[in-house]
C-alpha cells in the first residue's frame, strides 16, 4: 500500500499527489513513468514521474481527470492509500550537453513530465528554453518550478487569459526564427497528441530533431502484453519498454490516435458506473 502524503489542486481537473514510494524514488530518472492501481477492482494506469525526492522516498504525479480512474484518483486525499504503485518504468530521457539551445515544450498537463527533463538538461550544461501553455490561465500550474528548471521560460494561453494569446507552436516558431534553426539541436514536446503533432509538423519543416513522449494505452507496462504498440518509422515498438520517448517525426500519429480510442465506449460506461464513495454527497463523477 502506498500512502498519499501531499495533495495540491491546480484546477478542478488538474491535481498533484506526492506518494510514499521509496523503491521507485531510489532509482527513477527523468522521463520514466509509474503504473498505479487505486484499489482491487481498479485498472492499471500509467502516469509520468513529474518529480521525486530520493531522501524522503517520494514520487510526485500530476494528472488530469479524463475518465473513471483519474477522476477517482482526484477524489483521494492525504492519508489515503493506493493499492499498487510500480516503477520506474520505461527508458529514461536521453540527457547530454547539446551544442546550442534546447527547447522544451509542455502543453496542459504535459508541463509536469517536462519538468524533471528540463531540470536535467539544464544541469547537464544546456541552455534550456521552456515553453508552457494551456487552454486558459486557470489551468496553468508549476510556472515557478518550470522557471527554476529552465534557463528561460515563456508562457502562453490559447485564449489569451494569461501572459499572451497563442499556441505553444506560435511561440516556438518565433524562437526558431529568432535563434536560427541551426542553433536548436533538439526540441522536446510533451502534451496532448494534437499539440505534439503540431510541434512535430513545425519542426519537420525546419529539420529540427524532436522528441515526444507517447501516452499509449497500457496494461502491464513491462513489455508483456503489446497493448501499447505503436509504429515508429514503419516498425512496431512497445511504448512501455522501448519508449515512452520517440523521435516525433517517426511516429504514426493516425494509428496512435486510433488505438487510443479502442475502449472509448467502455470508458464512458465505466464513468457512468462510477459512484463516488467519498460520503460527502459530491455526486460522484457526474
Amino acid at each position: 500500500m502506498f500512502k498519499i502524503l501531499e495533495k495540491r489542486v491546480f484546477s478542478p481537473i488538474i491535481k498533484e499527489l506526492v506518494v510514499d514510494a521509496p523503491k521507485v524514488a531510489k532509482s527513477c530518472k527523468a522521463g520514466q513513468f509509474i503504473i498505479l492501481r487505486i484499489q482491487e477492482e481498479g485498472e492499471r494506469i500509467p502516469l509520468t514521474i513529474a518529480d521525486y525526492d530520493r531522501e524522503k522516498g517520494t514520487i510526485t504525479i500530476v494528472f488530469q481527470e479524463v475518465g473513471k480512474s483519474t477522476t477517482q484518483l482526484g477524489q483521494m486525499e492525504v492519508g489515503d492509500y493506493l493499492k499498487d504503485f510500480v516503477g520506474p518504468l520505461g527508458e529514461p530521457s536521453h540527457i547530454e550537453k547539446f551544442d546550442g539551445t534546447v527547447v522544451v515544450v509542455g502543453g496542459g498537463v504535459g508541463i509536469a513530465p517536462v519538468h524533471p527533463i528540463a531540470r536535467d538538461l539544464k544541469e547537464a550544461g544546456n541552455h534550456v528554453i521552456g515553453i508552457i501553455g494551456s487552454r486558459s490561465g486557470d489551468l496553468l500550474f508549476w510556472e515557478d518550478k518550470m522557471r527554476a528548471a529552465c534557463s528561460e521560460l515563456l508562457v502562453t494561453t490559447d485564449d489569451g487569459s494569461y501572459v499572451r494569446k497563442g499556441f505553444v507552436t506560435d511561440v516556438m516558431k518565433e524562437i526558431i526564427e529568432a535563434k536560427g534553426k541551426e542553433n536548436i539541436p533538439m526540441v522536446l514536446a510533451i502534451g496532448p497528441q494534437p499539440m505534439m503533432r503540431a510541434v512535430c509538423n513545425l519542426t519537420k519543416d525546419y529539420g529540427i530533431k524532436t522528441i515526444v513522449s507517447l501516452n499509449a494505452t497500457m496494461v502491464d507496462g513491462t513489455g508483456m502484453c503489446g497493448c501499447c504498440r505503436v509504429s515508429i518509422a514503419g516498425s512496431t515498438k512497445f511504448v512501455c519498454v522501448d519508449g515512452p520517448e520517440f523521435d516525433g517525426h517517426d511516429v504514426d500519429w493516425l494509428e496512435l490516435g486510433r488505438r487510443g480510442g479502442i475502449f472509448r465506449d467502455k470508458e464512458q460506461q465505466a464513468m457512468e458506473h462510477h459512484e463516488c464513495k467519498c460520503g460527502s454527497g459530491c455526486g460522484g463523477a457526474k
Binding site: 492499471r44 473513471k68 480512474s69 475502449f263 467502455k266 460506461q269 465505466a270 458506473h273
Partner: peptide
C-alpha cells in the same frame, strides 16, 4: 466482471 472491475475488453 467489467464494469464492477475497471479494466475493459472489447
Amino acid at each position: 466482471q467489467f464494469p464492477d472491475y475497471d479494466t475493459p475488453i472489447k
